[in-house]
């Protein structure tokens, strides 16, 4: 087996560079994307690797989105401003979001938000009560990324701080 110093350096550096590339890609979309906010509803499961998260559905304001059986499993582009769905990148729309229709739901890879364990139950309740919204960073190619979770228009941590619950009796 190849154990030359060059191969060892490459083998040791490869995972670090790949992870760095992934982080830079995500950071770029977050920093340069157009910021838009949508209302959400959801629930709270747990990921062993990354902790608690909320899974929610985003209300893009497009009636009947992904209800057509013909578009299931297909990549589509939505234009929330026009409340329209496109098969290809729409030239007329100022921003659009790329995603697929799965089980009659539009999924753009932005339906998850990681939260600290101690706030999971409370945040879940607030989101279930339709008090939540998310801000997305949308890149020019339609790729979107979650930016912030808002509760009644405030960043969730700020909302929690301002609305401390009394300790349980």
């Amino acid at each position: 087996m190849n154990r030359s110093p060059k191969f060892i350096i490459a083998a040791l550096a490869f995972p670090i560079l790949a992870l760095l590339g992934l982080a830079i890609n995500k950071a770029t979309i977050r920093e340069i994307g157009r910021i838009v906010t949508f209302k959400i509803t959801g629930y709270d499961p747990r990921d062993l690797l990354s902790g608690h998260y909320l899974i929610y559905q985003i209300d893009y304001g497009i009636p009947g989105l992904c209800t057509n059986p013909d578009v299931q499993g297909q990549t589509i582009y939505i234009c929330p401003q026009e409340q329209r769905v496109y098969g290809d990148k729409p030239a007329s729309c100022s921003y659009f979001i790329k995603g697929t229709c799965q089980n009659q739901r539009f999924e753009a890879g932005v339906e998850r938000y990681y939260i600290p364990q101690e706030y999971a139950v409370r945040l879940d309740r607030l989101v279930q009560n339709k008090q939540g919204s998310v801000t997305l960073s949308v890149a020019s190619n339609g790729e979107a990324q979650v930016n912030r979770l808002l509760i009644e228009g405030l960043p969730w941590a700020e909302f929690i701080q301002k609305n401390q619950e009394p300790p349980a009796p």
Partner: peptide, 21 residues
């Protein structure tokens, strides 16, 4: 490396399946 994938998922709220990670 696995922990860092988890950290990046957490920071950027990626919506992938565990098998993809």
């Amino acid at each position: 490396s696995l922990a860092t994938i988890g950290l990046i998922s957490q920071i950027y709220h990626t919506d992938g399946e565990p098998y993809q990670a």
